[in-house]
Amino acid sequence: MSLSYEGASGGRIAALDDVSLSLGPGVIGVMGQTGSGKTTLLEVMAGALPPDAGGMTFDGADALRGDGARRLRAAVGMVSQIPERQFFESTVEREMAFGLIARGMDADAARMRASEALSELGLNLDELAMRSPFSLSGGQQRRVAIASVLALRPKLLLLDEPTAGLDPRSRSACLDAVRMAGRSGATVIVASHDANALAAVADRVVVLERGCVTLDGSARELLGNAPLMREHGLEPACASRAATALRRAGLAVPGAPLTAEELATAIAEGRGLA
C-alpha cells in the first residue's frame, strides 16, 4: 500500500511507497531511520490512518472497511512513542481500567486484567493503584502505559520505540513482556532503531528506507549480519559487531550471535570449550 502527505513547502512526499507485507504470529521488528515510515506503517496497521492506495486484510477480511475494520479496531492495541504522554486519570488504577472499560469490560474483570498485565511488566497493582500516574518515575510510567495496552490482550500488538529512553531494568521488563506476548500467539510488531532490543525479542525483521521495504528476513539473518546492516545505514546489534571484529582478528565465531549470551556460547564453541 502507499500513503503520501504534503511536505512543508508544497509537493507530496511518500510516507509509504508500495509496501507489501504478510504478517503472522510472533514478534516482527521494523527497523529504519527516523523518517523512514515506521510510525506511519504502524498507524496504518492500527487502522488509524487510511492508505492512499492499496488494501489491508486482517484475519481474512478486508480491514479497511465495514465489519473487517471494526474487528481490526477491537483486536488491535497500539503503544505509541512515549506513551506515558497520554496519561490523564487521577490514579494508576483508573488509567489502566480506562481502555478496558471503554471496550465494555466490567470493573472487576478490568482490575484483574490490569493486575496481570502490570505483573508481566514487573509492577504490582496493589502498590501503585491509588497513586497518580504523574507521580511515578519515567520507567514506571512507561511500563504502566505498555501494561495498559497489554491488558487488552490484543491479537495485533503494535509498539513504537517501546524502549526509548528507559533505564535498564524497565527496558528488560518491557522486552520480556513483548517476548511473552509474541509467544502467546499474538502478532507483535515492534518499530525500533535499537538493534539490540530487536535482537532480544524479534523472530523476523523488516527494514524500511524512505517508505520502501528494503530488507525482509529472519532476525538472525539480518541483525546478525553487521556489514549488511551498515550498508543500509543501521547500527548492527552489539554482539554481531563484536563477532565481526573478533573474526577479523582471527578468532573463530560460528553462527550469528545476537546477544551477549549467544556470543559467549559461540566463542566457547569456536574454541572447542562448549
Binding site: 490523564f88 497518580s132 504523574f134 507521580s135
Partner: peptide, 8 residues
C-alpha cells in the same frame, strides 16, 4: 491542575 501538581 491536579495532574500538574502530581507531576511536580
Amino acid at each position: 491542575v491536579a495532574a500538574l501538581e502530581r507531576a511536580g
